Computed example of a mutant assay.
Amino acid sequence: MVFSLVFEGMKKRFWRWSHHAILAVILSLDFYTESIEMDRLAPLLNHISLAARVFYAGELCQVASFDDSEVAGHLHVVKAGQLTLRIGGADVACVDRPSVLFFPRPCNHTLIPQNELGFELLCASIDLGVKVQSPLAMALPEFLVLPINDGEPMAATLDLLFQEAFGDACGRQAALDRLAEYFLIQMLRHVMAAGLLKGGIFSALADQRLARAVTAMHQRPAHPWTLDELAEQAGMSRARFAVNFREAVGMTPLDYLTDWRMSVAQGLIRQGVPIKNIASAVGYQSQTALTRVFTKRVGRSPTEWMLQA
């Protein structure tokens, strides 16, 4: 009798504990799933081959010029010293503290030391999907100058970058390139969170309601989205959604969707995916339909673009 009572008590406590534990796990999974669903940056990064290659690290005591002949942007991390940034013959910034000079697209620019001591920096070429007209690359401003504060997460990554740059450990170049890519993502997080990106798709991503619709388009380019469905994703009326989206992005939701699909298609073409398979992956019922829209938007047929990519 006593054993039965004790056993029943233990069983009740076990089920109470199990119930709370299971509930906690479910809530955690819900939070985790929601976080992933609202990751505004991930879909943009998933459809491009984000790449960075560090090509210089050290002191620079002379003028350094970079042109736009490469299909790549540039990242300059200034660790110490003073310099002037010149673009198109005009001095646009004076840098006298640890800072990042970020050029998401090819851009003619010159770094000029302000004194004979020069400056210490690290330089990398970067690819944010310019060749496939990625919204990430095209919506960013021509350049950004970002001071680095000691307490920021980016500062710790920069410390690692410079440790690798001036060391001689095995795998140095690979480590530098991967750290530079990670730093790029940190920097994009920073400028998005700080509201430094005001135009284009970043304006929509800064709005919680519009961001839900944009993220849905990014995650599911093959879905036959309608304006009504996108408005429902945003939790807005059809008319209000259309007006707000156009004011934020500068184009209609369906025009943006088409551009996004073309960017995804270009990325798949570069990966060697057959064009007939790409059509369904980006929301078109036939290769002919994709070719027609692609040619109108890009100016060349998919086959012609592939030969020149």
Score class of each variant (00 low, 15 high):
residue 10 M to E: 06
residue 296 K to F: 12
residue 198 K to R: 09
residue 299 G to W: 14
residue 200 G to W: 05
residue 254 L to M: 15
residue 236 M to R: 00
residue 78 V to A: 07
residue 204 A to D: 01
residue 239 A to L: 11
residue 262 M to T: 08
residue 104 P to R: 03
residue 45 L to F: 11
residue 75 L to A: 01
residue 299 G to S: 05
residue 269 I to A: 03
residue 72 A to T: 03
residue 256 Y to Q: 01
residue 241 F to R: 00
residue 308 Q to E: 15
residue 278 I to P: 00
residue 174 A to K: 11
residue 247 E to W: 02
residue 79 K to I: 10
residue 293 V to G: 01
residue 118 G to N: 00
residue 307 L to M: 11
residue 269 I to S: 03
residue 5 L to D: 04
residue 14 F to I: 07
residue 31 F to Y: 10
residue 263 S to K: 01
residue 195 G to V: 09
residue 170 C to D: 09
residue 47 H to M: 07
residue 309 A to F: 12
residue 295 T to N: 02
residue 273 V to G: 04
residue 37 E to N: 08
residue 285 Q to N: 12
residue 130 V to T: 13
residue 21 A to Q: 10
residue 108 N to F: 15
residue 72 A to C: 13
residue 150 D to G: 06
residue 277 N to L: 15
residue 71 V to T: 08
residue 56 Y to A: 06
residue 174 A to F: 10
residue 54 V to L: 00
residue 62 Q to Y: 13
residue 270 R to M: 15
residue 283 G to N: 01
residue 9 G to Q: 11
residue 77 V to A: 10
residue 18 S to P: 02
residue 240 R to Y: 06
residue 52 A to Y: 13
residue 258 T to I: 05
residue 284 Y to F: 15
residue 25 V to S: 04
residue 220 R to N: 06
residue 230 L to E: 13
residue 63 V to W: 12
residue 260 W to M: 03
residue 222 A to G: 06
residue 212 R to P: 11
residue 125 S to M: 10
residue 270 R to D: 06
residue 299 G to V: 08
residue 201 I to Q: 02
residue 255 D to S: 09
residue 145 V to P: 03
residue 190 H to R: 12
residue 170 C to W: 07
residue 35 S to E: 13
residue 160 L to S: 07
residue 4 S to T: 12
residue 297 R to K: 06
residue 215 T to H: 04
residue 156 A to H: 06
residue 120 E to N: 02
residue 81 G to Q: 12
residue 30 D to C: 12
residue 107 C to H: 14
residue 55 F to I: 11
residue 293 V to K: 01
residue 204 A to E: 04
residue 295 T to S: 15
residue 78 V to L: 15
residue 147 P to I: 09
residue 289 A to G: 02
residue 229 E to V: 03
residue 217 M to G: 02
residue 279 A to D: 10
residue 214 V to Y: 06
residue 243 V to Y: 13
residue 38 M to I: 04
residue 5 L to K: 11
residue 190 H to Q: 08
residue 91 D to Q: 04
residue 152 E to W: 13
residue 89 G to I: 07
residue 87 I to E: 01
residue 177 D to E: 00
residue 74 H to A: 10
residue 240 R to F: 11
residue 124 A to K: 05
residue 179 L to F: 09
residue 141 P to Q: 03
residue 30 D to A: 11
residue 64 A to Q: 06
residue 277 N to W: 14
residue 157 T to V: 15
residue 93 A to L: 05
residue 108 N to V: 14
residue 250 G to L: 08
residue 307 L to E: 09
residue 10 M to F: 12
residue 275 I to E: 08
residue 272 G to H: 02
residue 225 W to T: 03
residue 161 L to H: 04
residue 254 L to T: 08
residue 207 D to R: 03
residue 21 A to N: 09
residue 69 S to P: 05
residue 176 L to E: 05
residue 53 R to Y: 14
residue 267 G to D: 05
residue 33 T to C: 09
residue 123 C to S: 15
residue 179 L to M: 06
